[in-house]
């Protein structure tokens, strides 16, 4: 039987959740025995070249590109996991939720105390840039998500236990210490 295939992505996240994946340390050798990686920043495969079994999502959706990537993941992965607080509830980027986008952009680019010289008072408007959304959305409010691994970032032992349980089909018993929201 061929190995299960994993894809990962970082949407509106800080990449900390991906660092937490790498935090499994030497078990990464076992991991590459167990699974194959497809689209992921870890191997730098940029587009799906195969249908995948597990998609791991870091970060919520703050712009149109995030939505696009998340929908691609749903299309190409049998199982989707929201990894970390940003994917689950928007996380720190969602601190802007409840504040109108216009107000946020003006603070960031025009009025904030650390704004440099923006004499023409331009808000970023290049058409290459993805559109910023009215708020940051948790992933499960955009597509169906199958599993959730909380934490900021989730503990490496939790990620390891969950991935191994999914791949082997063994029951997942999570010790109290491993599930934390921070």
């Amino acid at each position: 039987m061929s190995k299960p295939i994993i894809a990962t992505t970082s949407l509106a996240g800080c990449f900390g959740c991906h660092m937490a994946i790498l935090d499994i340390d030497a078990r990464i050798l076992q991991l590459i025995d167990l699974v194959e990686f497809n689209k992921s920043p870890i191997d730098d495969i940029k587009t799906f070249t195969k249908e995948c079994d597990i998609g791991i999502i870091e970060g919520g959706c703050c712009n149109s590109e995030n939505i696009h990537v998340l929908k691609e993941f749903r299309k190409h992965c049998k199982i989707l996991i929201s990894l970390g607080e940003c994917a689950i509830m928007g996380g720190l980027p969602a601190l802007r939720n409840g504040i109108p986008v216009k107000e946020c952009l003006e603070e960031a680019y025009l009025n904030g105390p650390t704004v440099g010289r923006n004499t023409e008072r331009i808000l970023p408007n290049d058409e290459e840039l993805p559109m910023i959304l009215d708020k940051v959305y948790p992933c499960h409010e955009i597509v169906k998500i199958d599993y959730y691994l909380p934490g900021c970032p989730p503990k490496a032992d939790l990620i390891w236990a969950a991935v191994v349980a999914l791949v082997t089909g063994d029951e997942l018993n999570i010790p109290y210490e491993l599930v934390k929201f921070d």
Binding site: M89, H140, D182
Partner: peptide, 30 residues
């Protein structure tokens, strides 16, 4: 509730109940 940025995190009764009941994600929209 942005627990990662909260001073009470780890000492908070609401969060601790989230842990006790293994809340992975709320069933209601934010």
């Amino acid at each position: 509730h942005f627990c990662p940025a909260c001073e009470k995190s780890g000492n908070c009764d609401l969060q601790a109940l989230g842990y006790k009941y293994q809340m992975m994600v709320p069933r209601f929209p934010y």
